[in-house]
Design a protein around this nucleic acid. Structure first.
Length: 642
RNA sequence: GCCUUUGUGGCUCAGUGGUAGAGCACUUCCUUGGUAAGGAAGAGAUCGUGGGUUCAAUUCCCACCAAAGGCUCCA
């Protein structure tokens, strides 16, 4: 007998060789039907695998992430079985589960799968699922596995086998499909009731662009059809939030072939948002002791040799233009220009920390396939600043920058983000990173300490640092689930030295300043792209391109409306009159759909009372309000940015 | 950059080897109506660009341009 510890802490005795499924059945048949896998001593196992020693035990169903992962991983095997049946000779690489669904990478040789074929593969998968074939696990010796795949001429699985230890190799078989797989799997294919293959894509073998490109099929499956329907609705909702769609509908930005890829044109409504953001940044930075500067968009090659951008960053810069034998580059960053301002006059320790701020325009030659709406562009406006400080001042300065992030995020109600401490990879010193191993260690520790002392939750990631130092990135996700860095706070221990920057210390000795690069509002492009999705186009009053639409009941009240409009404008409120000869219901509908925060409905009653009937976006009719009162209340909300 | 897909009026989308259609938006007229779509008429597209095949191409082929999804999540 073996002792099995249940999740509630109870210990029960079972025969050696009992399976998780047996235990589930002993509890209830209904439960057993839902079991996808089991967690044995913290490890996910097939529910049909015999238990041979004392262990802790938990059943996994669709409600557990680990259960879902098992379900999707097994679904990848069903997809592979379908593809193998339809495309003989196909070779498979790996087929892992994702946060939402799964994929399988495969080499189809000369064969081709198009989107039209996906439905056929889905049909085949449904057929295989209905057969309710069991997933059978076999342990297999490495030699045997190698000869099996050598015979199949499958270089991909042989490659995987190279890194596996003998004695830990397992095959899984369902129906006619056998795969090298660690498992675990769901009991049988019949649990998969709803299948959707979502897309087909190329993916480099092992993620290396020098390798062969494999075909990757993505799909998602569910234990019932209703969940699939809900998933489809959710995807459609996410698409409605996509900043590319809302941005066009609201006249925020556009692209034009003659201007170029990744070069957004900011339309009047988008420009208002930009100006409100800059106003916020300038106010905040003024209070925080920043000084504003303005610098050119181009600079000579020599400056980028000094800065190190040319050796480390050239691929991301537009190629140079040559004038009278001198090369000029469009700036990809503002820092070198700011360093030159630091260096323009002798500096004393009394001037530090010196904080230079600019909403700088930068140009980056991103690969064409990486461009993505406003989130990834080639022309960007950065909420940039550089703080020159002593080592002693570094902690306070870095912390103050973090506080500024938090303040901004509160204004915008941003709560779904992850702070990421991005570290260098020692193996890439001298290539991707400046070759100063000691300084890397020292500054990484400094940044980590600031985060810990400030009690900010964060994750650490290797090989994501800037070439000149570690950084903290704020990671966010777009409506369709892509991850981006929204804001960044970077340490730079390298450029001070490279630019020979120095200040006179209290001991009257030259010292090299530490530099903090920071962009709490990121770039206009990415930040506004993010805000469009975050608010689904329904901007708060203060930043909304149009704040009030005045809706006359009929054009008899037009003069009164014009009077209100003039009052709003003289109070700095952005307003328009809907002067179309439409019914009020129509005007309201169109204004609601255009996401205008405030509507003033104006008829005879309002005109007589010197009032408006207030309607707030999404909240409906608010009743009659005196014009002077509503203007005062709006002005307060706009000033408070609520 | 690479793989797959797409490219028809401002937007969403039909359609065809014989030079195009709908809805919304737009313009004009009628309507002056009290909290999410009033009615009528009208204008608007050399079907992404360039080449090829053909008597004839928006439709078939090729190239280019642009867009979308993916190329990180290691059996």
């Amino acid at each position: 007998m073996i002792n099995i510890t249940l999740p509630d802490g109870n210990v029960r005795q079972y025969e050696v060789g009992t399976t998780a499924m047996d235990i589930a059945k002993s509890i209830s048949e209904g439960l057993a039907k839902k079991v996808l896998a089991a967690e044995i001593n913290g490890e996910v196992w097939d529910s049909t695998r015999p238990l041979t020693s004392d262990c802790s035990f938990k059943l996994l169903t669709w409600d557990d992430d680990k259960g879902k992962n098992t379900f999707w991983h097994s679904s990848a095997h069903i997809m592979a079985e379908a593809v193998e049946a339809m495309y003989p000779g196909v070779k498979f690489w790996v087929g892992p589960p994702l946060d939402q669904g799964f994929y399988y990478d495969m080499d189809l040789g000369d064969q081709h799968i198009t989107e039209e074929d996906l439905a056929k593969i889905e049909a085949k998968m449904n057929e295989l699922a209905k057969q309710n074939n069991a997933f059978e696990r076999t342990e297999i010796a490495k030699d045997e596995a190698i000869s099996y795949f050598t015979e199949k001429n499958d270089e991909y699985k042989l490659d995987l086998l190279q890194n596996l230890e003998d004695g830990k190799i397992t095959f899984y078989k369902q129906g006619n499909f056998t795969d090298l797989c660690r498992g675990p799997h769901i009991p049988a294919t019949g649990l998969v009731k709803a299948i959707k293959l979502t897309n087909i894509a190329g993916a480099y073998w092992k993620g290396n662009e020098k390798n062969k490109q494999l075909t990757r099929l993505y799909g998602i499956t569910f234990p019932n059809a209703k969940l699939l329907d809900e998933y489809v609705v959710m995807i459609e909702e996410a698409k409605k939030r996509d900043h590319r769609k809302i941005g066009r509908d609201m006249g925020i930005f556009c692209f034009d072939d003659d201007v170029g890829q990744g070069l957004p044109l900011w339309m009047p409504n988008g420009t208002i948002i930009i100006e409100e953001l800059e106003k916020l940044a300038k106010e905040t930075e003024e209070v925080a002791g920043y000084k504003r500067v303005v610098t050119p968009h181009i600079a000579k090659e020599s400056m980028y040799i000094t800065s190190g951008h040319l050796p480390y960053y050239q691929d991301s810069m537009f190629p140079p233009m040559e004038l009278d034998g001198t090369k000029y580059y469009l700036k990809a960053m503002n820092c070198p220009h700011h360093h030159k301002i630091f260096d323009a006059e002798p500096r004393s320790y009394k001037e530090l920390p010196l904080r230079l701020a600019e909403y700088g325009t930068c140009y980056r030659y991103e690969q064409s396939g990486e461009l993505f709406g406003l989130m990834r562009v080639r022309c960007l406006h950065m909420n940039d600043a550089h703080i020159y400080c002593s080592k002693a001042q570094f902690g306070d300065e870095f912390r103050a920058v973090n506080d500024m992030y938090v303040k901004y995020f509160k204004i915008f109600g941003i709560d779904k983000y992850v702070m990421r401490l991005s570290l260098h990879d020692p193996a890439k010193l001298g290539q991707k990173y400046i070759d100063e191993p000691e300084l890397w260690k020292e500054t990484e520790a400094m940044v980590r300490n600031v985060l810990i002392e400030s009690n900010i939750p964060f994750i650490e990631v290797q090989d994501e640092a800037a070439f000149y130092g570690p950084k903290i990135d704020v990671q966010i996700w777009s409506a369709i689930g892509r991850e981006f860095t929204l804001a960044t706070n970077q340490v730079d221990f390298a450029q001070g030295k490279r630019f020979k920057l120095s200040y006179n210390s209290a001991e009257n000795k030259p010292e090299i300043p530490l530099i903090i690069h920071r962009a709490p509002l990121g770039t206009h492009e990415r930040f506004i792209g993010f805000l469009l999705e975050h608010y689904a186009g329904k901007f708060p009053l203060w930043i909304s391109p149009l704040q009030v639409k005045i809706l006359p009941i009929s054009d008899k009240f037009m003069d009164y409306c014009k009077d209100i409009l003039a009052q709003l404008k003289s109070n700095g409120i952005r307003a328009e009159i809907d002067d179309r000869s439409e019914k009020i219901g129509r005007k309201i509908r169109d204004t609601e759909l255009a996401h205008i925060p405030y509507m003033f409905v104006v008829g005879e009653k309002e005109m007589n009372d010197n009032a408006v009937s207030l309607r707030i976006q999404g909240k409906g009719d608010q009743g009659s309000v005196a014009v002077a009162d509503i203007i005062a209340s709006m002005k307060k909300d706009i000033a408070d940015r609520v």
